[in-house]
Design a protein around this nucleic acid. Structure first.
Length: 544
RNA sequence: GCCCCCAUCGUCCAGCGGCCUAGGACGCCUGCCUUUCACGCAGGUAACACGGGUUCGAAUCCCGUUGGGGGUGCCA
């Protein structure tokens, strides 16, 4: 161990750790209450996998009567990206993963770059107890060591005799300091490493080799603000913030042996871990972790821009976590607790078609007023033109949304996400609708242009807007018969050449002229909303 | 190289030694319903990675192989 005056030169003016222990008292919580946290790095944008883990963390805390907070892990100043804070500020409330605690709670600050004083205290303690030492090795020397280790086919890393500063004499340290050489503080890994076992809340018992690397605890003293590495910050923060359950990605499993050593060296009670399998992306036959670079759906921006209702996303994600919940009705599933033991140990693939299906179901059971509110909120952000039109429509918007949704047990499921509203329901707004005036348009499914023209001319001439629903279609039926369409499939199948098609093609002429699409809500209801004049104008367009 | 994790239909899972000729959901295909598209309903398609054990009996337990993922950083 280095003498105290040398330690003072290494880390001057450090407060005793006792001070931090006292300032961060255990919370007064009921037995069994979990304290969890979400610890994102401000490097670019929030990953949907982060939302997934955070949702679980928050839910477990809330269900157990505990506490959940967000801690920004910005110890890598070089990788921090401008704008991350703003992005987080939008995304957290959107997905309901904003903290239930902080920023003024006693366990803060919740940003690691503001906690350097705290880390220094604990590093000093580690130095004093001989669990850490200063290391003046340069990058070049490190590279040379790695090279020799590769040649010698031994484990890579700073360990044993490769750790050249591990047992440096005080005189040598003093000399290096006198020279003004920058240094890091490294952990002194316990001697005689063996095997270790620990229990993961998701995976059960895991065995691994003990860590024997002298990992860096405190980054270079040449930095303006020497910050800790993840490992030290994790131990200190999760201890001081009195976290009871650490939820994190399974890429951390191999660091647990080190973390346990750190907790021990620091004299902390170890935390419970739950390592969550990452969300995956299918690629051909294989799969890989969802990547922010390659996969748009990895970023929460995608989910927000597409306009998936958060309730649907939540249901989908919770179903991935605990498949027991996947097939339950929304409310029932939401009422059921998430259980760590039921998490899958392998990473699930994010399946957009499945999400779409869930989302369509979710929207279908929303009241029209809710759909309107969410849609408006989405459009304000992502489609201002549409937002303006929706607002101008007033209460008629509710009628539009409810077409084919009320007084029926077969609810339409056209809206899978807010971004499809424009293409599915845009025809209700004259500003978004383009007349279909070419009788040869391919959307008429191959019906001869002259037939389309004659049919639509006839339709306009005799259009009766007052007919109620059952009768409204009689007009189409009558028209179909007169213009050479088969009224039932059997007749058509018996002699396809004798007809221009069936009622399907005939109705399609009306549908396409009215909506521009082959898929739309019930024609009679649309006609009712649009009004007789507009119906005549649209259907008559290809008549010439 | 070494260490760790994982492995059931195309996808998400269920299955935790006999109830499995492997079940559900999404997708896909076919019919039905609808005087129209969609919705809905009914049916169909399709999997225990491979090889050894253990056991009266294995998708389920053990070992190995293969494959995939991760770690081995002054990135988290």
């Amino acid at each position: 161990m280095l003498p105290a005056d040398l330690l003072d030169r290494l880390l001057p003016d450090t407060a005793p750790t006792q001070q931090w222990e006292e300032a961060n008292p255990p919370r007064d919580l009921p037995a069994g209450a979990e304290v969890t946290r979400f610890a994102p790095s401000p490097t670019g944008f929030l990953h949907i996998g982060g939302v997934y883990t955070a949702m679980v963390a928050k839910e477990l805390a809330e269900r157990s009567g505990g506490s959940y907070f967000v801690r920004i892990e910005d110890t890598d100043q070089a990788r921090a990206i401008e704008g991350s804070d703003e992005h987080f500020a939008r995304a957290f409330p959107h997905f309901g993963i904003d903290p239930t605690e902080g920023p003024d709670a006693p366990w803060g600050p919740y940003r690691q770059s503001e906690r350097s004083e705290i880390y220094r205290s604990f590093v000093r303690a580690l130095l004093e107890s001989g669990h850490a030492y200063p290391d003046f090795v340069t990058k070049d020397e490190l590279a040379a060591i790695t090279e020799r280790q590769q040649a010698a086919k031994v484990d890579l890393g700073y360990w044993g005799e490769w750790a050249v500063w591990r047992d440096a004499e005080p005189e040598r340290v003093t000399a290096a300091l006198d020279e003004g050489l920058p240094f890091t503080i490294r952990f002194r890994a316990p001697d005689a490493p063996g095997r270790i076992a620990f229990d993961d809340a998701i995976r059960g018992r895991i065995e691994a080799d003990d860590n024997r690397n002298d990992v860096v605890l405190l980054k270079s003293s040449a930095e303006p603000l020497p910050l800790p590495t993840y490992h030290l910050a994790h131990a200190v923060d999760d201890h001081l913030m009195r976290v009871t359950l650490v939820l994190r990605g399974d890429e951390w499993i191999s660091s647990v042996p080190l973390h346990l050593q750190l907790f021990d060296a620091l004299g902390f009670e170890p935390v419970r871990y739950a390592h969550v399998a990452p969300l995956m992306k299918g690629e051909g036959k294989s799969r890989r972790k969802l990547s922010k670079r390659k996969d748009p759906e990895a970023s929460v921006d995608f989910w927000m821009a597409e306009g998936y209702p958060v309730g649907a996303v939540r249901h989908y994600l919770r179903g991935l976590a605990n498949s027991r919940l996947a097939d339950l009705p929304f409310e029932e599933a939401a009422a059921e607790p998430l259980r760590l033991e039921e998490f899958g140990a392998s990473g699930p693939l994010v399946d957009i078609p499945k999400l779409d299906d869930i989302s369509a179901d979710y929207v279908a059971q929303m009241p029209a007023t809710d759909i309107r509110d969410r849609l408006l909120a989405w459009a304000d952000e992502h489609d201002p033109e549409l937002a303006g039109l929706l607002r101008a429509t007033g209460d008629d918007l509710l009628a539009i949304i409810d077409v084919d949704r009320v007084d029926t047990d077969r609810v339409r499921k056209d809206i899978v996400k807010w971004s499809v509203f424009r293409e599915r329901y845009g025809f209700f707004f004259p500003e978004l609708f383009a007349l279909v005036d070419d009788p040869a348009d391919e959307r008429f499914l191959g019906v001869p242009p002259e037939v389309v023209a004659a049919f639509t001319t006839d339709f306009v001439a005799g259009y009766d807007p007052d007919t109620a629903s059952p009768g409204w279609f009689d007009q189409v039926r009558g028209l179909a018969e007169r213009h050479g369409f088969a009224l039932d499939r059997k007749a058509y199948k018996a002699d396809p050449d004798a007809f221009h098609g069936t009622m399907r093609e005939a109705s399609n002429i009306v549908r396409v002229t009215l909506t521009g699409s082959g898929q739309s809500p019930s024609l009679d209801q649309i006609a009712g909303v649009l009004g007789a004049d507009e119906v005549r104008r649209r259907v008559g367009a290809p008549a010439g």
